[in-house]
Design a protein around this nucleic acid. Structure first.
Lengths: 258, 258
DNA sequence: CACAATTCCACAAAAATATGCAAAAATATT
DNA sequence: AATATTTTTGCATATTTTTGTGGAATTGTG
């Protein structure tokens, strides 16, 4: 797609040098009214050549939030609630693994009040949250740090994880299909999650309700393998029954008063 | 002056260099009211791009208190200046290693504006700074994350580092003794620094003036091995002469104009 | 517990944007 | 070349978004 007029091309050219310009200035430069500039800008924005902001135009690619940050914002309330419930289950002084994910990142934030934890995680975000002077020990695998979410994957990460045995595993999932299989969107992620699950006594899955019915490319494992599923209500009673028959404890509400 | 979203990205940019800023200062800088800044900050905090604290805004990656935090505050101005000079030497698109340290953490903050870097570091702090959508690649060794400064040391970290060859090594030191030997306070640190030095074409040491005459327990290497030393003036002329005879380039001032 | 600083909240003012419509310009048609 | 048709532009007005202000509530400090 190309700009439909000479003026629009000149606007683009101008924006390549400055990364922002307000409407009035452009109107003066091209000696047309503000309205006309707005109409041009609207078209350019529809063609995804510029970003329209209140007060003017900006180039693309300047302030885009990463997909991870977007996902952190989605279902924030629900995730925070789930995280809070999860952290109440975890006693001080225990050992645990957390895989990378938006929900587990919220769990880490809830766990920040805990003391003397030994934490193994592949997420630099989680490591950063649980590190500060809390008496915690934090262990991480090495490798390339994924730009999107600051997580580390791959064979060596999986091998690193396997060195440890912990009391708790807390994992997030990309989706839970109708047969209650746990899935992720990338094989790298599911592989790592599986490793985490195998090294722990007690396995907790944190997943907000929107995950039900979604199916990711990469299968992690069957629901049977899990000990506790934390999610938010309401949960259809047939799912609830099925979970019970699989010996999976379903938690949707804090046991705390208040 | 600027629409809110542009202002917000400028705030972010500013916060990458300082790790904290109070509301009033931002309000003055952007010539808007305190309340407007608060609204911006609230939005940024909801997007998890900054941390809101009573009295102002802080970056996410600053979460450590502790001795490290204290050392970050010491000679802040000097370290920032040195960091700025250092980042001017580094072109976009290059490969580099940074070891953990307060001065290198400032270098990372200055490097945040660079694009397409390939960075290998043992500091989660530095990884977190250089990761955000910048087109950079970041690699880290695995291991226990040291509580004090979020750094990873040990044999496996050294081995990990040795896998790579890079254009630049940027290292910080604990002290520079009177024979101009570079030293650190812990053998773990010096071992890792040595590995970093050996894998790079060009080695830069960043050390503020207060490091001269201090001696750490663990020797890193002789000054001869270094290519560039960046520090702050004034430097006694006999040291300057000695460096020259060792073929070490001494830089104490930005080459930039203005 | 009080004092000061900071933040939150609600409402009004200001700035920016969208919309409908008529005039002007450009283009097409005969 | 004259006229009809389409497109672009500008203006007045309605709507939306952003901003500043003055209290009320909250937080940090001694």
């Amino acid at each position: 797609m190309y700009p439909s007029s000479i003026r629009q091309s000149k606007m683009l050219e101008r924006l390549r040098l400055q990364q922002f310009c307000n409407i009035t200035e452009l109107a003066e430069v091209f000696s047309v009214s503000d309205e006309t500039v707005r109409r041009d800008v609207r078209q350019l924005a529809e063609m995804h050549l510029v970003r329209k902001v209140h007060g003017g135009v900006a180039t693309l690619h300047e302030t885009m939030e990463s997909p991870f940050q977007k996902r952190m914002a989605e279902q924030r309330e629900e995730k925070q609630q789930i995280a809070e419930i999860c952290s109440e289950l975890i006693p001080d002084g225990t050992t645990l693994m957390l895989d990378s994910g938006t929900t587990t990142s919220y769990v880490a934030r809830s766990l920040a009040k805990h003391k003397d934890l030994t934490v193994i995680t592949n997420s630099t975000d989680i490591a950063g949250i649980l590190l500060p002077p809390s008496g915690n020990h934090v262990y991480m695998p090495g490798g390339e740090v994924r730009q999107d979410d600051g997580a580390i994957f791959g064979q060596s990460a999986v091998e690193y994880i396997r060195q440890f045995n912990v009391d708790w595993a807390i994992i997030s999932v990309g989706g839970i299909d109708n047969q209650l299989n746990l899935t992720d969107y990338y094989p790298l992620e599911s592989e790592l999650s599986r490793a985490v699950i195998e090294q722990a006594q007690e396995v907790i899955v944190v997943a907000d309700r929107s995950k039900f019915g979604r199916v990711g490319l990469a299968k992690i494992c069957k629901m049977e393998v899990i000990d506790i599923l934390i999610t938010n209500p309401p949960i259809p009673s047939e799912i609830s029954r099925e979970l019970h028959s699989m010996d999976v404890r379903l938690i949707t509400q804090s046991s705390q008063v208040g």
